[in-house]
Design a protein around this nucleic acid. Structure first.
Lengths: 341, 341
DNA sequence: GGCGCTACCGTGAACGTTCACGGTCGGGCG
DNA sequence: CGCCCGACCGTGAACGTTCACGGTAGCGCC
């Protein structure tokens, strides 16, 4: 168990570079194939030889090249996942779901964050080189990046623009209708939507919410926030609370922003849901931890992950078309009525 | 832009499998090398030929094999990151930091979750095959998994047992001393540590906290919780609050558990920090969103990521030794005094 | 002694790409 | 006309691994 002393990698003549299977074969006095047999636990090798080969491999710090192996074996299936910003808890919630779904099918997941990465273009391109399919949020630059990915199959998640290929849509469906009914029944008259200022404003969610209110004869102000963070939402809420008439319901773009709204209300001494009702979107578990517990439009990330993976593997296998109706799925939001509204 | 109609991949004789560079060469009536020149924007090719080659590539849905390319180019650097459970917000916070640090060095990050994955052994092994170095939380099974990784350089994060290789340690250092001083000065007499029931109990954190109290002549009860989740912590807290004497301070293993403690106190009508003081560990941003804002021992995830990557790339390059004093770094906790204690 | 069988091991070939070099062809120049 | 040069393009070789097959030795059996 103690590390073999005095052995640095490339201990024989090799000045640099990893040891290859031929180095091990030479060191053990056998052929390539015998090394393969030893390393991969195949039959057709004596116990003594196997031991000798493994010792040589250990001494040379030999590790099979994933490229050499992948070349002949046809490669493990590798999925690229693009998320918007890992600091927003929704991203990891989704990532967790995707990792789980992928593991079930024997796929590995490679994670990329386009908000955190300086050179997003390079990142996307690298992802295309390293993976067999890519799933994720592309936002406004979807066409550009999908082009950058070359012919790697792509599944867009909740696309904002017109879809160019496969996609999993998020549909507020009747959850938003029921939410609006609920708010109106509670006496809400001055609702405000706190929208995330993406490239295209207002967002689809905001539009959908506004439409639901408009159907029932109520006008909704849409307040754009520079970044979809709790801090920005809190700052925006402070402004809103000073308005006249004061909003009696704040619908946030996502749960994290809604948490910021709750914090701002608490600091301002405004009772939730008594004076202001607050709702989010995403259904994050941590929404149940705060007081009052957050009412939200929950998205079933496991279902999203399942559908996305289904599309991705289908496209890789050549079953699913790369675009068109068969390449689109829809996952519905669920209304999660807790305490804040 | 419109997809070329009537062209399915493998449109010529090929019954299955992706098109190779030779297929493109044949289709365009040129040689391999010319295809390479066209695809990679190299010089020594006429504009007309280049256009013809690119058209053929497009038609055949050709995509360079990452294995073939990696084999000759020596491979992009790829880092594996093992986290415990993505549903705990600390994991993504760390992952975000690692992704950022890695992107700065031109590395890609592949994410694995050992809690979510059914067959963790297989996952770890696959990670070893696909990456050039692995960083992460291995927990109790560290030796076993490091062995499984073969000769892939490994950096353990906050190892619980004795370190077998490189590691980044988390040191509560004087932050915990100052915390205990603060609690004692506030009149705390019956502190309880809510520990995460890992394989080795009590955890290093719990031990450290207990020692700090013991140094000042106070005994601390350690309460193990089956899982390090908010729900479990809340349930445990309900039990604790019925004890006599009732604890006047609860030190949780991490922030998520501390949030569970806060929720339980709120439900029980117990004032924080008036009647019970609550402390977490991690320094998650969301700890500032709850009421009262969570006092915690913050860990600088960016610094952890930097150190870990430094070790990893050093080992890959052969600079840093695989074990020993030079292969270990330490990052100190910081006391973040907010409202809950 | 010849035959076949088993256990063990080695040798071409292939995977898909890029590098280094060699070839061809047209044209300018003395 | 002979020479050289630049622009363009093609051909072996190499990367590291595994698969399919071929070889050799030992041994039992007729």
């Amino acid at each position: 168990m103690a590390g073999p002393a005095g052995l640095t990698p490339g201990d024989a003549g090799d000045p640099a570079g990893r040891a290859t299977i031929l180095d091990v074969a030479a060191a053990a006095g056998v052929s390539r194939q015998t090394v393969t047999r030893a390393m991969n636990g195949m039959e057709g090798i004596s116990a003594a030889t196997k031991k000798r080969v493994l010792a040589a491999a250990e001494a040379l710090a030999y590790r099979p090249s994933r490229f050499g192996r992948g070349l002949v074996l046809g490669g493990e299936q590798q999925l690229g996942l693009i998320v918007d910003d890992l600091r927003n808890p929704y991203s990891p919630a989704l990532a967790a779901a995707v990792v789980r779904a992928a593991a079930g099918r024997g796929w590995n997941v490679m994670l990329a964050d386009i908000a955190l990465t300086g050179d997003a273009d390079r990142m996307v391109e690298a992802l295309g080189v390293q993976t067999d399919a890519v799933v994720g949020y592309f936002g406004k630059r979807a066409p550009e990046w999908i082009a950058l990915l070359g012919s790697v199959p792509v599944v867009e998640l909740d696309p904002s623009g017109p879809v160019t290929g496969a996609a999993v849509h998020l549909d507020p469906g009747d959850a938003v209708e029921r939410l609006v009914e609920h708010l109106l029944a509670a006496g809400v008259r001055h609702p405000v939507v706190l929208d995330a200022a993406g490239p295209d404003l207002p967002s689809r969610r905001a539009t959908r919410m506004r439409a639901a209110f408009a159907d029932r004869g109520l006008h909704v102000a849409v307040e754009p926030v520079a970044e979809p963070t709790a801090e920005r939402a809190a700052a925006a809420t402070e402004r809103l609370l000073r308005q006249d008439p004061r909003p009696d319901a704040v619908l946030a773009f996502n749960d994290v922003m809604a948490l910021g709204v709750l914090a701002a209300c608490r600091r301002a001494g405004v009772d939730v849901p008594g004076e202001v009702r607050v709702v989010g979107v995403d259904g994050l578990p941590l929404g149940a931890l705060v007081a009052p517990a957050l009412t939200t439009l929950e998205v079933d990330v496991d279902e999203v992950a399942r559908q996305a993976l289904d599309l991705a593997v289908g496209m890789v296998a050549g079953r699913t078309p790369r675009s068109g109706a068969d390449a689109e799925r829809t996952v519905r939001h669920r209304l999660l009525l807790r305490e804040s509204a």
